[in-house]
Amino acid sequence: MFAVIQFPGSNDDRDMRFAMKSVLGVAAELVWHKNPELPPGTAGVLLPGGFSYGDYLRCGAMARFSPVMTAVRRFAEAGGPVLGTCNGFQVLCEAGLLPGALLRNRDLDFLCDWIHVRVEHAGAPFLSRARAGQVLRLPIKHGEGRYAIAADALAGLEAGGQVLLRYCTPAGAVDETANPNGSIGNIAGVRNAAGNVMGLMPHPEHAVEALTGGTDGLALLGSLVDAVTAAGRSR
């Protein structure tokens, strides 16, 4: 079962549940942020997009203090897969579960658009259904998505293969014209050193049906389903 954490101000929580339940056909539940525990049987945790606590303070800065985050941290430390999208990515960075931070977009404005990202490293648990170099078309919608990290930490991130997605042109070229928000190194998604926590600014849950714009988001969410299913079998 996937736990979709619902903070006050989460907006994409129900969409994430829709993607998991109605499109991918796996169990997914909204879990209220005040719950001190994850529900029994939680095999994966999803932190959705939105404006937790209004994002009146730094994005995600309040949500990381929600009671459920203690349980999420425990879950991650035990190796459970955790995926944060958009505000969820910001929460994971604020919580220290992922390196780096997300700053105001280069052009200052909120930006909603379909963009392209290149898969830098394929493989479980987040990108087993993708191949390295593959270009995915996903939507972004954020005002604060400019990924930033200190130079030495960035070097470590690159060396460790932790940069999973980069903004690119439709043909897969990573250049400044394809960088929608000014992220360092065109970084759109990263994972932790252990490889079980990932954050990304694009919205895979909004790219799960041809009817509403495309299905490339399934490369990510489907991979997560595969990983959880495989873990369940081996248990």
Binding site: F18, F110, C112, T212, G213
Partner: peptide, 26 residues
């Protein structure tokens, strides 16, 4: 309209820029 979230709730079949917007019902 690029400054507006036109996708949240996952129902947007035709978003801004078309003649009419078209939204799926759940």
């Amino acid at each position: 309209w690029r400054q507006y979230d036109s996708l949240v709730q996952g129902n947007t079949v035709i978003g801004p820029g078309g003649d009419a917007a078209l939204v799926r019902v759940k």
